[in-house]
């Protein structure tokens, strides 16, 4: 299977090791992985801020860069959903681009969803061990149905025990630009999420979207809590991912 990795702008900027962990997982699953070099951002900041023109500009760029590949995989439910479910709607008035957006949409997957439902791979090069709790990111959960996939993969790791927290499906308060427009409200919602994480007693908090993870990590650290905050790809790829 020829898979293109959509790195996502946050992973590119903040946590490259998540991108390398994703490559390692996809390769272990038998995929040939390409990383189109000109990729930048899926356009969600513009889309969610009401700047449709900006969103369309970036959508066209992503479609052109990725449409030649059999599959597109992103280590983020939110970016995968943007390409899969929102791009077609951006081009309702433009038959050519609408067609191209639709043709790409069904081939775009969030990483754990792809590993479980498309690659159907059991190969997880992980040596991770410990007790973790999992935060379900809103867009992945409610728009792509990402819930059982990361748990199914984590259950395959012998050293990993999952301890569910209360309110795992509740928003962490990130919300993209919401976090910088309404910082106080956003941080208060994050605090509730962090309280649930701490009450769970898990050694690490794991999730599938870096935006949420940065929000959670930032709040935990401000609370003086050093619990590791990890992307599910890092956990599944193990030390091999970390060494990058």
């Amino acid at each position: 299977m020829r898979v293109a990795l959509f790195v996502t702008c946050l992973v590119d900027l903040m946590r490259p090791r998540i991108g390398f962990a994703a490559i390692r997982l996809l390769e272990a699953a038998g995929c040939e992985v390409a990383v189109p070099e000109s990729q930048t951002c899926c356009g969600q900041p513009g889309f969610n801020s009401g700047d449709r023109a900006a969103a369309m500009m970036l959508a066209k760029k992503v479609i052109a860069e990725f449409e030649a590949y059999e599959y597109v995989v992103a280590p983020s439910g939110s970016c995968a959903d943007q390409i899969r479910n929102e791009y077609p709607g951006l081009f309702v008035a433009d038959p050519e681009w609408h067609g191209r957006a639709v043709a790409l949409a069904s081939r775009v997957f969030e990483l754990t969803d792809f590993l479980v439902n498309v690659a159907k791979s059991d190969a997880l090069p992980s040596d991770f061990s410990g007790t973790i709790t999992y935060h379900d990111s809103c867009t992945g959960l409610r728009s792509l149905g990402i819930k059982s996939q990361p748990r199914a993969l984590l259950a395959k790791l012998r050293g990993v025990t999952l301890k569910e927290m209360d309110g795992a499906e509740e928003c962490c308060g990130f919300g993209g630009t919401f976090s910088v427009k309404f910082g106080a409200v956003s941080a208060a919602i994050a605090e509730r999420k962090c309280d649930c994480i701490r009450t769970s007693g898990a050694d690490a908090i794991v999730g599938g979207d870096l935006g949420c993870l940065l929000n959670i990590e930032g709040k935990l650290r401000r609370m003086g809590d050093e619990t590791p905050v990890l992307h599910v790809a890092e956990v599944l790829a193990g030390e091999g991912g970390k060494q990058q």
Binding site: M14, S179, K219, R221
Partner: peptide, 16 residues
């Protein structure tokens, strides 16, 4: 607005 209520995690080091 971000750092009033929480830290901003440092990037890993270089871009992907």
């Amino acid at each position: 607005e971000w750092t009033a209520g929480r830290d901003f995690p440092a990037p890993q080091g270089r871009t992907f």
